[in-house]
């Protein structure tokens, strides 16, 4: 195991080493809220961060595992592609933003816009999520064991949102949908993989009403022409 002390190692040295590694286990101590910690990993390495991090921790993550024992600021695991990012504390806004794949686990709460524009990632939040979570979410699953603040799933595409607690309000074009057997299976799998504990039967499902997918266009002239009137 290799340890990096961010009190004496630069961010550049840290990320260079992580990018160069093809395997192995790494521990980062004294992160002191640094930004872009462990960003751009692209190998099956195992990284543990002891302490809280700033923006974009594990940004664009691929293949490996990053575990943060603390809290994270904006953009945790933004645009992650694969692998696993797991935080024991809370994450502020835009956790998992635009992420394409892999599993993001937030044991605590997530701030606003959790899963914004998500494109295939699975996100499991042990606590609550802030307002406009799942905004323009395109694909993947957002599982919230706690409550969701206002405008959940605003302008959502084909992502699925599951909430166990209350939902303050749904955003534009987001509706509640039936929970079928396949959804219970998805919940069971994701809750199991996250290491958290919840009964899939307690969740409600939200997704797109698909009313915003295409512009609503009238054509009075064509209608009149078809009816034999003026065009």
């Amino acid at each position: 195991m290799t340890t990096f002390d961010l009190a004496s190692t630069t961010l550049r040295e840290l990320n260079s080493a992580l990018h160069a590694a093809s395997d192995g286990t790494f521990t980062i101590v004294n992160p002191q809220g640094a930004h872009a910690v462990a960003a751009g990993i692209d190998s099956p390495i195992d990284v543990t961060v002891r302490g809280s991090v700033g923006y974009y921790c594990a940004g664009m993550h691929q293949q490996g595992t990053v575990r943060i024992e603390g809290n994270a600021s904006t953009g945790l695991a933004e645009n992650m592609m694969s692998g696993r990012v797991h935080i024991t504390g809370n994450a502020t806004m835009s956790a998992g933003a635009t992420a394409h794949g892999g599993l993001l686990v937030i044991e605590g709460n997530a701030g606003s816009r959790c899963g914004i524009s998500m494109k295939g990632v699975d996100i499991v939040v042990g606590g609550n999520v802030g307002h406009m979570s799942g905004f323009m979410a395109q694909a993947g699953n957002l599982v919230v064991l706690g409550d969701a603040a206002g405008d959940l799933g605003d302008s959502i595409y084909e992502a699925e949102i599951f909430v166990r607690g209350s939902v303050e309000s749904l955003g534009a074009d987001c509706i509640e949908k039936d929970v079928e057997a396949e959804h219970l299976a998805t919940l069971e799998r994701l809750i199991g993989e996250s290491g958290l504990d919840a009964d899939p039967a307690e969740f409600r499902r939200y997704g797109s009403a698909r009313t915003l997918y295409n512009f609503a266009v009238d054509d009075i002239d064509a209608e009149l022409a078809a009816a034999g009137g003026a065009s």
Partner: peptide, 16 residues
């Protein structure tokens, strides 16, 4: 201020 951090992230991911 956020963009400054975003650019740092982009440079880190692409190794400057």
């Amino acid at each position: 201020d956020d963009l400054e951090i975003k650019i740092i992230e982009l440079r880190e991911i692409t190794d400057h």
